[in-house]
Design a protein around this nucleic acid. Sequence first.
DNA 1: TATTATTGATTGTACATACAAATTAAATTT
DNA 2: AAATTTAATTTGTATGTACAATCAATAATA
Lengths: 141, 141
Amino acid sequence: MEENKNKYCGCLYYSASALARQITKMADEAFSPTGMSPSYAFLLMIVNEHPGIQPGDIAIKMQLTPSTVTRLIDKLEHKGFLERTAEGRTTRVQPTKKSMELQDKLVEAWQSLYHRYVAILGEEDSRKLTNMCYEAYLKLA
Amino acid sequence: MEENKNKYCGCLYYSASALARQITKMADEAFSPTGMSPSYAFLLMIVNEHPGIQPGDIAIKMQLTPSTVTRLIDKLEHKGFLERTAEGRTTRVQPTKKSMELQDKLVEAWQSLYHRYVAILGEEDSRKLTNMCYEAYLKLA
DNA sequence: TATTATTGATTGTACATACAAATTAAATTT
DNA sequence: AAATTTAATTTGTATGTACAATCAATAATA
């Protein structure tokens, strides 16, 4: 084993990616009691709160590509959490009973994720970091 | 189209992932003149600078899983940029001439990535954000 | 009204990444 | 020295994400 210091951590691509992988892992764990991985959980929460929302709007809310959202909806529909109804060229996505019954658990898991990282990073630093990431994202997008 | 404000941007998982996807896209563009995507480029730079380095140490430097590093090396070896030599239970990774000839271009692309995001975020903010991401990563890991 | 352009959504395909299991080799213990 | 444990790496498999191309429906224009 050699020294593990490296000169790459001064690169935003490098640091931001590492952080994202780490927090994703944490989110996976936090959401695992719901049987959902984080992206699916977020999508479900959004649809539960906005029944009839269109895929394109979900994509905007989630900051994901429409094609990605299609894939997520595909799987959730197949598992019986969502239903699509075609309306001209647009699509409306509706939650099923199964999905709405899961809502509380989803929100709970989301909160548990929050508590986990706040316990490690501190409330103030978490808030600051989250904001900076989001602001930077907006500027770069 | 509905309002695109959302309540999720206060979540670190959400913001950090969004940022990572964005900066990754930027990195893809910056490295594209080298014919490499960023991960491969970083790996190559590391091997060029540390000929004979072991996969496990690359994983540490890159903050990636050993299995991921194996996959990256596989492809780079197949394309003739690297060579593996088995040494007991360890493996040594050597750059080929082809890889070393690419080094300048890789470094150049890396710098161009830096300039790109600094142009948008500013030097000071970039530095701060990068540090905060890295610090948070270390704490969460 | 017929043609063209735009928009929303989906599909084919590809990539980066990881986990868990398997393999191999070295180190430790008995 | 044989048996067991540990360590380094690789494989099988799965996931999340995106790009480019396509399809379908509406809007704009000639």
